[in-house]
Amino acid sequence: MTAFASIAAAELVVFAASSLRDAFEELGRRFESSQPAAKVVFNFAGSQELRTQIEHGAGADVFASADGGQLRPLEAAGLIDAPRIFARNEPVIVVPAGNPAGIGGLQDLPRAQRIVLGAPEVPIGSYALRILDAASALYGPAFAKAVGAHVASRELNVRQVLAKVRLGEADAAIVYRTDALAARDTVEAISIPRQVNALAEYPIAALRGARDPAMARAFVELVLSPGGRAILSRFGFQ
Rank of each mutant, 00 (worst) to 15 (best):
M1H: 08
T2N: 14
F4Q: 13
F4C: 01
A5N: 08
S6W: 05
A8R: 15
A9P: 00
A9G: 06
E11L: 11
V13R: 15
V13D: 10
A16C: 14
A16I: 13
S18R: 03
S18V: 06
S19Q: 11
L20S: 12
R21W: 09
F24R: 06
F24P: 03
E25L: 15
E26H: 15
F31V: 05
E32N: 11
S33W: 04
S33V: 08
Q35Y: 12
A37K: 14
A38P: 10
K39I: 12
V41F: 03
F42N: 02
N43M: 13
N43W: 11
R51M: 10
T52C: 01
H56Q: 14
H56I: 00
H56A: 06
G59M: 09
D61Y: 10
F63D: 04
A64K: 01
A66R: 04
A66Y: 11
D67I: 07
D67H: 11
D67R: 12
Q70E: 09
R72E: 08
A76M: 06
A77N: 07
G78S: 03
A82D: 10
P83Q: 05
R84C: 03
I85M: 10
I85T: 12
A87L: 06
R88F: 11
N89Y: 09
P91A: 07
I93T: 00
P96W: 00
G104A: 10
G105T: 10
L106G: 04
Q107Y: 02
Q107E: 11
D108T: 07
L109A: 01
P110Y: 00
V116D: 00
V116W: 03
V116F: 02
G118Y: 01
G118L: 06
G118P: 09
A119T: 00
E121I: 03
E121S: 13
P123A: 09
S126Y: 04
S126H: 03
Y127D: 11
A128C: 07
A128G: 09
L129A: 04
I131M: 07
I131Y: 02
D133V: 09
A134W: 00
A134E: 02
A135I: 02
L138T: 07
L138G: 03
Y139L: 05
G140D: 11
P141R: 15
A144T: 02
H150D: 02
E155W: 00
N157Y: 07
Q160V: 06
Q160N: 13
L162G: 08
L162E: 07
K164N: 07
V165D: 04
V165I: 09
R166Y: 05
R166K: 15
R166P: 10
L167A: 15
E169R: 14
A170R: 00
I174G: 00
V175N: 08
Y176E: 10
R177Q: 14
D179M: 14
L181P: 08
L181Q: 15
R184E: 15
R184N: 15
S191P: 02
S191N: 11
P193A: 12
P193N: 13
R194E: 15
V196M: 11
E201G: 07
P203W: 02
A205W: 07
A205L: 05
A206H: 04
R208H: 08
R211K: 14
D212P: 02
D212H: 05
P213S: 09
M215Q: 15
L222T: 03
S225K: 08
P226K: 03
G228C: 01
G228Q: 00
G228A: 04
L232H: 08
S233L: 04
S233P: 00
G236P: 12
Q238Y: 09
